[in-house]
Amino acid sequence: MIGCYTLFKKEMARFGKVWFQTVLSPIVTAMLYLMVFSQVLEGRVEVFDGISYTEFLIPGLLMMTVIQNAFANSSSSLIQSKTLGNLLFILVAPISTLQIFLAYTAAAVARGLIVGLGVLLIALLYVEVPVYNFGIIMLFAISSSAVLGALGIIAGIWADKFDQMAAFQNFIIVPLSFLSGVFYSIHSLSGIWQTLSHFNPFLYMIDGFRYGFFGTSDVPVGTSFAVVIVSLTVLSAICYRIIDTGYKLRQ
């Protein structure tokens, strides 16, 4: 396991060296969203009874930041390593398929949580957020960032060029996270859009995470957790398979 732990440490050091871009920048972006949306909609919209819009918004923004950064960590690390050729140092080392998967995923989770914590600390200066169940909050934060970490591994291995990666991010990750109930409750959507929203796995991550704060959600929390775990299982299996077969890694 030393090889796995070293790869995890290397991944942490990699994003730590460019913390301005990998940690500070997403925190600032999330805070801008919070300031603009709460300024415009506070007092005009009440999604859950007795919960202000700004309070409602914070868990969604937090989770969106966590999962986007988890994805960005594994995907950007892998495509950079592939493009620069230094992935070779890992490929020739005695690190098993499972260990490679675990190291990249754990680093993605860690970055997601660190950025999320940063957003939370600053948001707490802005408004007090209730905590209904801290365990559920952490459960969803870790499992959801692991899902996106695994998806980032797949994208990082699949993409041959940076513009393919940008397309993956801009046409899949960003729209799915924006349309997952970060800024609204899906009950406020009309028929077809509400139905379509249920096919978006990010909805369950954010809704379950929000349940941990307020004890109320659009979808039963058990269903949300089941969707996240199934997503994690499927994506982990795909990750394992592509790393093990050497798809786009070994000729």
Partner: peptide, 28 residues
């Protein structure tokens, strides 16, 4: 294996690269 292409990780120093590589091989 010493590869033909000159490849390196631009995030790290020489010593860091060697310490990480040692860790990949289980050496702490």
């Amino acid at each position: 294996v010493v590869p033909q292409e000159v490849v390196f990780d631009p995030f790290f120093s020489v010593r860091e690269a060697l310490i990480f590589q040692s860790g990949y091989f289980g050496l702490t």
